[in-house]
């Protein structure tokens, strides 16, 4: 109970200090704010180690209990240990470490990205079957118009009217306006959520 109270007091004090230091232009607050942010970065780095230990623990238990697909967990633990060993021995910029990134990690992530493109096309096709309302029709028509406005056909080039008038109007007027509206709403939500944490109405760090 006492620990939670201390955590709450520290979190609120630091949060208030950072907020005041950001909004009020007092020169004395700037170095203190930067120092506190440096501490936060160091603590986050320690959190990465804790997170990785948690990840290993979860997958180790899956292997130990011989759960379904636990072979993947074993592969994860082995490859994680191998990558860590390579990083420790040759350094993060070493030839072997870089080869591992460029030969395995980047291609795997790129193939997931390609898979995502296919998934999205499939989702768009199914959208009207799943939810045939006005907004879905507007969504599909806008996406189709934007795609056709950005392509150029062989021999013809840009599609007349669509490529030079409708496409730019859609992206710079309608889409930009809508995106700004969404961003303003998200900003207001972020502001009130931050204030709730600052007033300790929400205390993920202290058990509420």
């Amino acid at each position: 109970m006492k620990g939670k109270l201390v955590a709450t007091v520290i979190a609120i004090s630091v949060g208030l200090f950072i907020l005041v230091g950001t909004l009020l232009p007092f020169p004395i607050l700037v170095p203190m704010r930067l120092e506190l942010l440096r501490w936060a970065v160091i603590i986050s780095s320690a959190a990465v180690m804790v997170g990785i230990a948690n990840l290993i623990s979860v997958h180790f238990q899956k292997v130990r209990r011989r759960e379904k697909n636990s072979i993947y967990s074993a592969v994860l633990i082995l490859s994680m240990s191998f990558t860590l060993a390579l990083g420790v021995v040759f350094g993060p910029n070493g030839e072997w470490t870089q080869a591992l990134f460029e030969g395995i990690i980047f291609p795997v992530e790129a193939s997931l990205m390609a898979l995502l493109a296919v998934t999205l096309i499939y989702a768009s096709v199914r959208l009207l079957r799943r939810r045939a309302d006005l907004m879905s029709i507007v969504f599909v028509v806008t996406a189709a118009l934007t795609i056709f406005a950005s392509i150029s056909l062989p021999f013809f080039g840009e599609i007349p009217l669509l490529g030079d008038v409708i496409g730019p109007w859609l992206t710079s007027t309608l889409a930009a306006g809508g995106a700004r509206g969404l961003l303003l709403g998200v900003a207001l939500g972020a502001l009130t959520t931050g204030l709730r944490a600052l007033f300790a109405f929400d205390r993920p760090f202290g058990g509420k």
Binding site: T119, L120, A123, S124, L127, R130, R131, F139, A179, G181, L182, L183, G185, V186, L188, G189, A190, T192, T193
Partner: peptide, 21 residues
């Protein structure tokens, strides 16, 4: 915003913008 567009197309009941908060 990119994730919101994807969710609009792929989730049955998507939540848009500040509805997350």
């Amino acid at each position: 915003s990119a994730a919101q567009a994807i969710l609009f197309a792929s989730a049955a009941e998507p939540l848009v913008g500040e509805e997350l908060f």
